[in-house]
């Protein structure tokens, strides 16, 4: 994927572009908001990764300008530690995702992957059913069957499985799951994700002796393709 990275800090910029490069992406790293705005509006990128606080023209203003010009390239905004309220502002300005510093490379990679699929119209017609290897989710009736047997899932377990199945083959980090399934934007101090994940797996894997979900250590979870 072709990624435009706007980051003024030399160390973080180098580390980020190296990490993205190692994952097979092509990265243009720019340190100045004005130049990033020009690059984003003249060249074709799959994903933009903008730091909020950069000299000249900050990431948020650049984002607003881009969206104002109907350039809808998916964007991840990077922000300083703990700035929760900035999240809302960023999303309202048209950011597709939001990541606060410091972040793990796996988190950024997972989010970029998720974004690029979204940007390129995954599932052109909204699916009413998701199925894979005998596991079937009916999105209309909110029911789950495994090899024909009904599996009773509570709404949150259903939503968790749906998010995982929709992004099968790609990692969903704990933070991404918290946001998407439970709408939580903070880091819980108890093992919320693990608990629900193990309940879900007890329902869909154990009785059928199958493995649908894989735990990726230090990153998150992945629905096996």
């Amino acid at each position: 994927m072709r990624i435009l990275l706007l980051e003024d800090d030399a160390d973080i910029g180098a580390w980020t572009s190296k990490g993205l490069g190692a994952a097979g992406h092509v990265v243009d790293w720019i340190e100045n908001g004005r130049e990033a705005l020009i690059a984003a509006s003249t060249r074709d990128y799959d994903v933009l990764v903008f730091d909020r606080m950069v000299p000249d023209l900050d990431g948020l203003s650049a984002l607003r300008t881009l969206r104002g010009a109907r350039i809808n390239t998916p964007m991840i905004l990077l922000t300083a530690l703990g700035a929760v309220e900035d999240r809302v502002e960023g999303l309202e300005a048209g950011a597709d995702d939001y990541l606060s510093k410091p972040f793990a490379m796996s988190e950024l990679l997972a989010r970029i992957t998720a974004l690029s699929r979204r940007g390129h119209g995954e599932g052109d017609a909204p699916a009413t059913k998701l199925s894979h290897r005998g596991l079937e989710l009916d999105l209309l009736s909110q029911t789950c069957t495994c090899h024909g047997t009904a599996v009773p899932l509570n709404p949150k377990e259903f939503r968790l499985l749906e998010v995982l199945m929709r992004s099968k083959g790609r990692i969903q980090t704990r933070a991404m799951l918290l946001e998407r399934v439970w709408d939580i934007n903070f880091e819980p101090s108890t093992s919320v994700v693990e608990t629900h994940m193990s309940r879900l797996r007890n329902k869909i894997e154990k009785p059928f002796d199958a493995e649908y979900i894989r735990t990726i250590r230090g990153s998150g979870y992945m629905f096996i393709d």
């Binding site: 530690l81 703990g82 700035a83 929760v84 309220e85 606060s100 410091p102 793990a104 880091e187 230090g218």
Partner: peptide, 23 residues
């Protein structure tokens, strides 16, 4: 190094919470 990162995340979480409270 994984454990070190975990400890680092702890520290970051403390700072993030302090900063959130301050804000």
């Amino acid at each position: 190094s994984a454990a070190a990162i975990e400890q680092m995340d702890n520290i970051i979480a403390i700072f993030a919470a302090i900063q959130r409270i301050a804000r």
